[in-house]
């Protein structure tokens, strides 16, 4: 039976059945409407209101919440650290992930086991990484300071220092997320046809020029895709900062997601928390638009 006819008959039969389509889609659409779409639009609505759940009536206050957040140092510093955290993390993850992918793409004894190891940081809970590194970064008893002390004779007050804490949080995030980026880039490398490299060798490329003229342009779409994914995902990062620094010292490592949680569920200021959520939505939206534009550019240039 010709494939095309089979496909036509099968889809024709079901396409007429709107009830069937509806029933199949219902659980998924229902879940998303209930837990993602409705909360999203309700957050927009709430951001123009004052609302403390202990004193029920919601009061319309116009732009008051938004005016307040421009003067709120906890919010402005969390915006700047969120952006710094995401940009630096993503760049490091792509650079180091590329290195991991190149290593794991070479043939060596025990490669299968090393690839399995590469999966572990992705698989473990972020809270475990946060707690484990917090212990290792301990100023007095931590292993990192001990190693630093033995090798170069200094001890850094990691999590109590403004830039020390920022560096520690970003380093922990990079440790946890880079192997995943490496995994995706390794799959991209494996998709490159080998004869391209042979053709390159005939034309006299060495390993380094082959990387820049063959490998990199070919996997650029995947690099941009995973970069966009990591940016959007890390903009909403919550667990790491919550379990590692609590946003401190001061507001040094405060991120938007954690600030929203604090304002909503510790200060019970639901309206204001929604206004901060709006900032997060806008940042995610802007990042997505830039990322998609970039993706289109590298895809077309191929």
């Amino acid at each position: 039976m010709p494939a095309r006819a089979a496909r036509f008959r099968l889809t024709q039969r079901m396409r007429r059945n709107a009830t069937l389509i509806g029933l199949l889609l219902l659980p998924a659409i229902g879940l998303r409407l209930f837990t993602a779409v409705y909360p999203f639009f309700n957050t927009i609505w709430l951001s123009f209101h004052d609302w403390n759940p202990a004193f029920p009536p919601q009061q319309f206050v116009g732009l008051k919440n938004f005016q307040a957040l421009t003067r709120d140092i906890a919010v402005t510093s969390s915006i700047s650290f969120t952006i710094l955290f995401v940009v630096v993390s993503t760049l490091l993850e792509i650079a180091l992930g590329m290195a991991i992918a190149l290593i794991l793409n070479r043939a060596f004894f025990g490669r299968g086991a090393v690839r399995a190891v590469n999966l572990i940081p992705w698989a473990i809970p972020m809270v475990v990484a946060a707690v484990g590194f917090r212990w290792m970064y301990d100023t007095q008893y931590g292993i990192i300071n001990d190693l630093l002390h033995r090798t170069i004779g200094v001890k850094v007050p990691w999590l109590v220092d403004f830039w020390g804490a920022r560096a520690a949080v970003i380093a922990t995030n990079v440790w946890k997320s880079t192997p995943f980026v490496g995994l995706v880039l390794l799959a991209a490398l494996q998709g490159i046809p080998q004869d391209l490299y042979e053709a390159g060798r005939v034309d006299g490329t060495n390993r380094i020029s082959a990387f820049f003229y063959i490998t990199l342009p070919l996997i650029m779409p995947q690099i941009v895709t995973i970069g966009l994914f990591m940016v959007v995902w890390q903009l909403a990062a919550f667990d790491l900062v919550f379990a590692m620094t609590g946003g401190g010292p001061g507001f040094a490592t405060q991120v938007l997601a954690y600030r929203i949680y604090q304002v909503a569920f510790m200060a019970l200021n639901f309206g204001y928390a929604s206004a901060i959520s709006m900032v997060l939505f806008v940042v995610v939206g802007v990042a997505s638009v830039i990322g998609l534009a970039l993706f289109r550019k590298v895809e077309v240039s191929l």
């Binding site: 837990t35 957050t43 709430l46 909403a236 997601a257 949680y261 909503a264 959520s277």
Partner: peptide, 12 residues
């Protein structure tokens, strides 16, 4: 809808 930040919908 993957991009919607989870924490942004917590209040509603």
């Amino acid at each position: 809808s993957l991009a919607l930040p989870q924490v942004g919908g917590l209040v509603p």
